[in-house]
Amino acid sequence: MFPDLGNAIHLGTELEDVAKLIPEKLVQVTSEIRELNSRSIKFEASKKQHVSHKIV
């Protein structure tokens, strides 16, 4: 139903391994997660929504 969100969650579960094994890819993976989330989570400016996400 939400394949991009599922992929983002899966990548998120792998962040610790990426950081340990291939740290040079960490920025790329977090950017990919951010992109997948932005395609999955749509906000309507007319509604007050209390959802936020931040990848640091």
Score class of each variant (00 low, 15 high):
1 M>I: 12
1 M>D: 14
2 F>P: 04
2 F>Y: 15
3 P>T: 14
4 D>C: 05
4 D>P: 01
4 D>L: 06
4 D>G: 11
4 D>N: 15
5 L>Y: 15
5 L>A: 09
6 G>H: 10
6 G>W: 06
6 G>N: 11
6 G>K: 07
8 A>K: 07
8 A>D: 04
8 A>T: 11
8 A>G: 13
9 I>L: 12
9 I>C: 02
9 I>M: 09
10 H>P: 00
10 H>Q: 14
11 L>F: 08
12 G>D: 02
12 G>A: 11
13 T>K: 12
13 T>Q: 10
13 T>N: 07
13 T>P: 00
15 L>M: 05
16 E>Q: 15
16 E>H: 09
16 E>M: 11
16 E>Y: 07
16 E>D: 10
17 D>W: 11
17 D>P: 00
17 D>Y: 08
18 V>L: 07
18 V>Y: 03
19 A>R: 12
19 A>N: 06
19 A>Y: 11
19 A>M: 12
20 K>T: 05
20 K>A: 09
22 I>G: 00
22 I>D: 06
22 I>K: 15
22 I>L: 08
22 I>E: 15
23 P>H: 00
23 P>E: 03
24 E>T: 05
24 E>S: 08
25 K>E: 10
25 K>R: 13
25 K>G: 08
26 L>P: 01
26 L>K: 11
27 V>G: 00
27 V>T: 14
27 V>I: 05
27 V>R: 06
27 V>Q: 05
27 V>F: 01
28 Q>M: 06
29 V>Q: 03
30 T>N: 08
30 T>E: 06
30 T>M: 01
31 S>C: 07
33 I>N: 00
34 R>S: 11
34 R>L: 01
34 R>P: 00
35 E>F: 01
36 L>R: 01
37 N>P: 00
37 N>I: 09
38 S>R: 14
38 S>M: 14
39 R>D: 06
40 S>V: 04
40 S>A: 15
40 S>N: 10
40 S>T: 07
40 S>C: 11
41 I>N: 04
41 I>K: 05
41 I>W: 04
42 K>T: 11
42 K>D: 04
43 F>W: 04
43 F>C: 04
44 E>K: 14
44 E>G: 08
44 E>S: 14
44 E>H: 10
45 A>T: 09
45 A>L: 07
45 A>W: 03
45 A>V: 07
45 A>D: 02
46 S>R: 05
46 S>G: 02
46 S>A: 08
47 K>C: 04
47 K>P: 01
48 K>N: 12
48 K>T: 10
49 Q>K: 04
49 Q>M: 13
49 Q>H: 10
49 Q>S: 09
50 H>Y: 15
51 V>K: 09
51 V>L: 15
51 V>T: 13
52 S>R: 10
52 S>M: 10
52 S>V: 03
52 S>C: 04
53 H>L: 07
53 H>G: 05
54 K>G: 06
55 I>S: 09
55 I>D: 11
55 I>Y: 06
55 I>C: 03
55 I>V: 13
56 V>K: 09
